[in-house]
Design a protein around this nucleic acid. Structure first.
Length: 531
RNA sequence: GCCGCGUUCGUCUAGUGGCCUAGGACGCUAGGUUCUCAUCCUAGAAAUCACGGGUUCGACUCCCGUACGCGGUACCA
């Protein structure tokens, strides 16, 4: 059996779209699962929609997400990773290389190839030259609409332009296109990997333009030609391509090539069930990264939009490797899936709890750096201008993160609800300190007891565990009621309020641990002096 | 309009003719743990399986039709 070869074929019209990511992901997963090759090619035949920098952006996004490719288009700086492969510089994109023996992997770089194939089709009687002008075509379509008949090219040039006239016009450099001649009265049938048997009546298929008057091929020609050149065995793409599949199948037949298998994926939808669009929220993967979503979460979430591991599996958090291990087309859903942010948020919070503290720190750093309170706090460190201060600041942030991670949904929220960790002084009303309207005297006593306990914990033993142990012991000692219950709030609430100045926060043990002995005692002291 | 594809709790989905008085997850509600918040745990509400006909001893599952949604209908991909 042939090796599985799949490809992701984006057009460089902007950023990586989440729909595109889902397609690329399934490509990647299927290639990994089967031990096949994953190829990246670029479909840049539409010059009107081309966006500068889009190719580079696409590559970087895929790299960032960890969807590694075996072949095709790469950034130049990874050239050294391919030892025994054929590598060429891209003709049209500086800084980009093409790796593999079946290139070019960029459509704009093989224009002559498509032209040659289109002309061969004409020679074989499966395509013809068309000199119709856009205006006539449009009028014709309007008429067909009005007559309620299917909008198809009327084959004017096939019927009325003689071979002699064709030659003459060609010599005169008239603008022309080449159209595919669709046979009449035939049923094109194929087995889609997600939809099963799909049928089309060729009488309703248009004589598609294969070669445009600007010399560029259309998607239909280019796609078929280079999927064949690249020995692609499985075409995984969005459902929007399903209707043009018969044209592609015909092309494979006319060229005498074996057609690959198709898998048409269900669409990603807006909340109103229309095709996912910018209008109703973010569609670029980059936007989600900027909002503080982890790549693991985005991949995890997107993988489950249209696919599931089946068999009563209740676990939903999977790594890329685990997904690759389980992926199959049998469990790809047929219906479109709504992109539900709530679930993404949950998956993201799960991943925030799962990655290492080191990872959490380095990935959240850029978000910290945007916050005013962080900037001010770090500036205070920097004025001290000592080498070890930077390390100290990093350690402090890591402690904050350790305490904060279980309540974080997105990286962008980092520190937001715990600004007291970074404040020079707290602003709060004295009333906040009091637990259930406790009298002043009792409050003073409560804070004094906390302070005393903490004084007695040596700096070296300043851990969350020790703080909790000692403070809890004090609760039992001082605040046990007659019926044996322990009124922990009497000690813990004033302490926590003094430490944070907030109604809600992490526990006093955690806060004191992060703050350190000195700062904790200072804050308790300040609270005591409040009027 | 024409062609194609689809349709199970609000959302993602399990389900491949009897295990389904339809299961899980998110979200929601209630309770528990708890000094507060979050986490965590437990419970609950939530789908007449789009609708109507068949086929079958038996259908969410197969067939036909209808409705609705979406996609395509370009010298865009």
């Amino acid at each position: 059996m042939n090796k599985v070869r799949v490809r992701f074929a984006p057009s460089p019209t902007g950023f990586l779209h989440v729909g595109g990511l889902r397609t690329a992901l399934y490509d990647y997963l299927y290639a990994r699962k089967t031990g096949g090759d994953f190829v990246l090619k670029i479909e840049d035949t539409d010059r009107k929609r081309f966006v500068e920098g889009a190719v580079e952006n696409l590559i970087k996004s895929l790299d960032f997400l960890g969807l590694e490719r075996d072949e095709g288009v790469f950034m130049k700086d990874v050239a050294s990773e391919f030892e025994n492969e054929k590598i060429v510089d891209s003709k049209n994109y500086p800084g980009i290389i093409e790796v593999g023996e079946y290139g070019p992997y960029i459509q704009s770089e093989k224009l002559e190839v498509y032209k040659k194939y289109a002309e061969q089709l004409v020679k074989d009687g499966h395509a013809y030259y068309c000199f119709c002008e856009p205006e006539r075509l449009e009028e014709m379509r309007k008429e067909q609409q009005a007559r309620k008949s299917p909008p198809l090219y009327d084959q004017y040039c096939l019927r009325n332009v003689t071979p002699e006239e064709v030659n003459k016009k060609l010599k005169e450099n008239c603008l022309y296109t080449i159209r595919l001649k669709i046979p009449k009265d035939e049923t094109i049938e194929f087995e889609d990997m997600v939809r099963g048997k799909v049928k089309f009546d060729t009488n309703l298929v248009d004589d598609q333009v294969l070669l445009k008057s600007d010399g560029f091929p259309t998607y239909h020609l280019a796609n078929v030609v280079d999927d064949h050149d690249m020995k692609i065995t499985y075409i995984i793409r969005g459902e929007e391509w399903l209707s043009s599949a018969p044209k592609h199948l015909l092309l494979y037949r006319y060229f005498g090539w074996e057609a690959p298998r198709f898998a048409h994926l269900p669409l990603l939808l807006n909340t109103d069930r229309s095709k996912l669009s910018k209008r109703q929220g973010d569609v670029a993967v980059e936007d989600y990264i900027k909002k503080g979503y982890l790549k693991e979460a985005i991949i995890n979430f997107v993988a489950f939009l249209g696919w599931n591991p089946g068999g009563g599996e209740t676990q939903e958090i999977f790594t890329l490797e685990e997904l690759a291990d389980r992926f199959d087309f049998a469990h790809v859903h047929k219906g479109g899936a709504v992109f539900d942010l709530k679930k993404l948020d949950w998956i993201n919070s799960q991943w925030i709890k799962r990655i290492s503290l080191e990872e959490l720190y380095s990935r959240s750093l850029e978000f910290w750096k945007e916050k005013e309170f962080y900037k001010e706090w770090i500036a205070r460190y920097e004025t001290r201008n000592m080498k070890h201060e930077a390390q100290e600041a990093e350690n402090y942030i890591k402690k904050v993160l350790e305490v904060e991670r279980e309540r974080l949904q997105k990286l962008s929220e980092v520190g937001e609800s715990n600004r007291f960790f970074f404040a020079e002084k707290l602003n709060y009303d004295k009333k906040l300190l009091s637990w259930k309207d406790m009298p002043d005297e009792e409050l003073r006593q409560s804070l004094a007891r906390s302070a005393e306990i903490m004084e007695n914990i040596p700096k070296g033993d300043w851990t969350r565990e020790n703080l909790e142990k000692e403070l809890m012991a004090a609760c039992e000692k001082y605040y046990k009621t007659q019926d044996g219950k322990i009124n922990r709030g009497s000690l813990l609430w004033p302490l926590r309020a003094a430490l944070t100045g907030e109604q809600k926060s992490p526990s006093p043990f955690e806060v004191a641990w992060v703050l350190g002995k000195e700062e904790s005692l200072k804050r308790i002291n300040k609270a005591t002096e409040l009027k």
